[in-house]
């Protein structure tokens, strides 16, 4: 099974986000970057499928943020091929442009399965996984929490998550694109030593697919931090003082019976 995984870099929300001077975009240069969480699950799901029945896992990432580190980590986890797409801008591409770039790189690979994280927290004008499926002309199901091989070649079985921990089971004819919410197992841990070893041995193939940006749709008129409403009444002091105050609040409301 020829599996392609898209890995993206997104701003780390643990750090304070900063806005550009025009108030219409993030200050991307000020952000620190991490691998998109659901893409990490997509990689894990791809590796599990490979381990269950063979195949190759090719990871494609845009040259933005710390993609080289993410690609090396993917190699340390077991990815077979690494492709880095040229991108020379300070900000990531618009969604439709990103989909066109990834599609141009993925199509010649003749994949059986393309796995993409179902969401990225910096997406605002669409969702990459289904957008990529539409660009590639492949069937799509998203919000997936597990992918398994079937006895019938050319198909996979997937679980799509609905509220209440209910799953809808589908059989997908390949090739297909899946939007992964979570792999059937948590992403594996690899020690730093293996990532360092992969950084020395793994070959990253650089590609410049040179796709022109398609016409864009929505425009950001203003980007801003939510106004502070009344919000929570903040409890201050040491941990013991906060604990005591919370216990008082619960007792006042009859919640400590």
């Amino acid at each position: 099974m020829n599996i392609i995984v898209v890995l993206r870099q997104v701003p780390d929300l643990i750090e304070q986000l900063e806005l550009d001077a025009d108030g219409k975009s993030l200050d991307w240069g000020a952000a620190s970057y991490i691998i998109n969480e659901s893409d990490d699950h997509a990689l894990e799901q791809a590796l599990l499928l490979k381990e269950a029945g063979g195949g190759t896992v090719t990871v494609v990432g845009l040259d933005f943020g710390n993609i080289e580190g993410s690609l090396h980590t993917a190699a340390a986890k077991g990815a077979d091929r690494l492709i880095r797409l040229a991108w020379g801008e300070d900000a990531p591409p618009r969604l439709s442009h990103a989909a066109a770039l990834y599609a141009a790189a993925i199509k010649p690979q003749n994949p059986d399965l393309v796995l993409v994280g179902v969401q990225a927290h910096d997406e605002w004008e669409g969702v990459l996984a289904p957008w990529l499926a539409a660009t590639l002309g492949l069937p799509y199901v998203g919000v997936i929490r597990g992918v398994w091989r079937t006895e019938t070649p050319g198909k996979v079985r997937v679980h799509k998550e609905f509220p209440g921990a209910v799953m809808a089971e589908f059989t997908m004819k390949l090739p297909a694109v899946l939007g992964i919410l979570g792999a059937e197992k948590p992403p594996r841990y690899v020690p730093v030593s293996r990532i360092r070893a992969a950084a020395k041995s793994a070959q990253i193939v650089d590609q410049n697919v040179g796709v022109q940006p398609p016409a864009v749709g929505a425009q950001i008129e203003q980007l801003y931090f939510p106004a502070k409403g009344e919000g929570a009444t903040m409890l201050t002091g040491s941990a013991e003082e906060v604990a005591a105050r919370i216990a008082e609040l619960l007792a006042e409301r009859g919640l400590l019976r």
Partner: peptide, 16 residues
Amino acid sequence: ASICGGKLLADLALDK
């Protein structure tokens, strides 16, 4: 639109 886990809001114009 609420983005970045609700830490940012974006006012958008969709003219098509």
